[in-house]
């Protein structure tokens, strides 16, 4: 029996090339799916800067409060928070909402440092360092505290919202 040379050669070449391609394809998948490669924090500079900026601004707004205009903070909370962060935020602000009006409280928060821990598609985890100054209009007393906040964020319609808040204690 004589097998035609050319078709046999072509068939062999097809199998070899095809397997080589399949191997390379699988290998690429492995390289691109390591935890280090999946996390785009810093690697995607533009998106890292975007989430850092938007979430820092959100925290500045959410944790600033003026007894003279308390609804301003409440309004901001509606657009900046989502999911379990809504409830967590309410718990964190309960004391200020309760005592704010009678003590004429003004709370000013400034995010001094922000860093993105993980960034994957439309989800991010950040670490925020905040300076908080509270001033009481009735006693004239001001206090400054430093705080640390771990924040989860989700991106919807080109805007980042806070989806979880985890206070890590201050200094």
């Amino acid at each position: 029996m004589r097998i035609p040379r050319l078709p046999a050669l072509l068939a062999a070449a097809t199998i070899v090339l095809g397997s080589g391609a399949a191997w390379a394809h699988a290998e690429t998948g492995k390289l691109n799916s390591t935890p280090a490669a999946r996390n785009a924090a810093l690697a995607n500079g533009a998106r890292t800067a975007e989430v850092k900026g938007q979430i820092s601004e959100a925290a500045n707004t959410l944790f600033s409060y003026n007894a003279a205009a308390p609804t301003k903070t409440d309004q901001a909370a509606k657009t900046l928070l989502t999911g379990q962060a809504v409830k967590q935020y309410d718990t964190m602000l309960a004391g200020i909402r309760r005592d704010g009006p009678s003590q004429k409280l003004v709370l000013t928060t400034t995010v001094t440092d922000a860093a993105v821990r993980t960034l994957q598609d439309d989800r991010a985890r950040l670490l925020l360092f905040l300076d908080q100054r509270s001033a009481s209009g009735t006693t004239g007393k001001t206090t400054d505290v430093g705080a640390v906040l771990a924040v989860d964020a989700v991106r919807r319609n080109a805007h980042w919202q806070i989806s979880a808040l985890d206070p890590l204690g201050g200094s």
Binding site: A21, A22, A24, E27, T28, L31, A36, A37, A43
Partner: peptide, 18 residues
């Protein structure tokens, strides 16, 4: 297929992002 997957493998290997 080989050309394409070989190229993407090369890209993944030398990716500065990774």
């Amino acid at each position: 297929f080989l050309g394409w997957s070989g190229w993407s493998l090369y890209q993944a290997y030398r990716s500065p992002l990774g």
